[in-house]
Amino acid sequence: MDLKIFFKELDLIFKTGDIKKAEELVLEWMEKAQKEGNIPAILAIANELGGIYRVTSRFEEGRNAYSIAIHAIKLLKLENTEQHGTTLLNLASVYAASKNNMEALKLYEQAAEIFEEAGLSNDYRLAALYNNISHVYDELKELDKAQLNAEKSLRIIEILPEFPIEKATTYTSLACIYLKQKRYDEAERNLFTAQQIFKNQHGNMNPHYAATLSAMGELYYYTGNYTLSIRYFEQALEMIRNNYGENISYASTCRNLAQVYEVVGDPSKRNEYEAIATALEERISKI
């Protein structure tokens, strides 16, 4: 089994944004790896599968996929290695996405300890880890800790030119914290920087740009420019649907749009988006 072929095919599919086709490919290769008893391949493929389940809000399936990965790590005697830290980071992200913040924080801290002991102080994975910890503290409304970790992430990622998308998402994360702190000028500067980075990339727009668009929708809602707010939220909604389907982020963006339409006095649109959000949240909660 040549994993180089697998990752090449997967990358090509991800560039098209067809998440369903990507899942089919990963499941096909997982079946092959299990039949061969190829534990290193199972580890790599399970991590990819868990990521697909996370972005499509299938959290139980995501936890199961990463459980397979962690079992593979134990079989390969890779505890406390970089691979172990990466898998813990990925599993923590599933817990964070499903709002199980304390479990996510515990796993993130384990991963941070592994990375730091491995000497990865200037590695993009540690930057991603700090960014994710920032998100959890944001959810817990501990904004000072959220800001501190986002800034740690940015300090690492700014000196790694080969990771422009990660840099853009970190600027977006920091901007979201500034929004909650009502530091709108700083939020706007960060979002414009993130937007420029995304637009400078070749090929299709990276799906993570949806978070930047959504944050810009929030910025203009808070600063009273409702026309721009609606425009950015609708662009975010389209990107989320095209890349990930109607997941929890899609529902959240619908709620944001409902809120804007309520302020501008359009009850029909408000009710439309509110109904979509409620139906999606109910469906996702049963998965």
Rank of each mutant, 00 (worst) to 15 (best):
D2R: 10
K4N: 15
I5Q: 13
K8S: 15
K8A: 14
I13L: 08
D18W: 04
D18N: 15
E24H: 12
L25W: 12
L27A: 11
L27F: 10
M30T: 07
K32P: 05
E36D: 11
E36W: 10
E36R: 15
N38H: 12
N38R: 05
I42V: 11
I45Q: 07
N47M: 07
L49S: 06
G50K: 03
I52T: 10
I52L: 15
N64Y: 08
K77Q: 15
N80W: 06
T81G: 07
Q83M: 12
G85F: 03
T86V: 12
L89A: 07
S93Y: 07
V94Y: 01
Y108P: 01
Q110E: 15
A111F: 05
F115I: 10
A118L: 08
G119L: 11
N122C: 06
L129T: 02
Y130H: 14
I133G: 04
I133W: 09
H135D: 07
L140E: 09
K141D: 08
L143K: 11
K145S: 11
K145M: 15
A150M: 01
E151L: 10
I159G: 01
E162H: 13
E166R: 06
A168D: 05
T169A: 08
T169W: 03
Y171H: 08
Y171K: 00
Y171A: 00
T172V: 06
T172N: 15
A175R: 00
I177Q: 04
I177D: 05
K180I: 05
Q181Y: 02
K182Q: 12
Y184G: 06
D185M: 11
A187F: 02
E188K: 14
R189P: 00
T193C: 05
I197W: 01
F198M: 10
N200F: 00
Q201Y: 05
H202E: 13
Y209P: 00
T212M: 11
L213M: 14
A215T: 05
G217I: 09
Y221M: 12
Y222V: 02
Y226L: 08
T227I: 09
I230M: 06
Y232A: 04
E234Y: 10
L237R: 03
I240N: 00
I240F: 13
I240E: 02
N242K: 14
N242F: 02
N247F: 00
S249C: 07
S252H: 13
N256G: 14
A258Y: 05
Q259F: 04
Y261D: 00
N271L: 11
E274Y: 08
A275D: 15
L280Q: 07
E281K: 04
I284A: 03
I284D: 00
K286S: 12
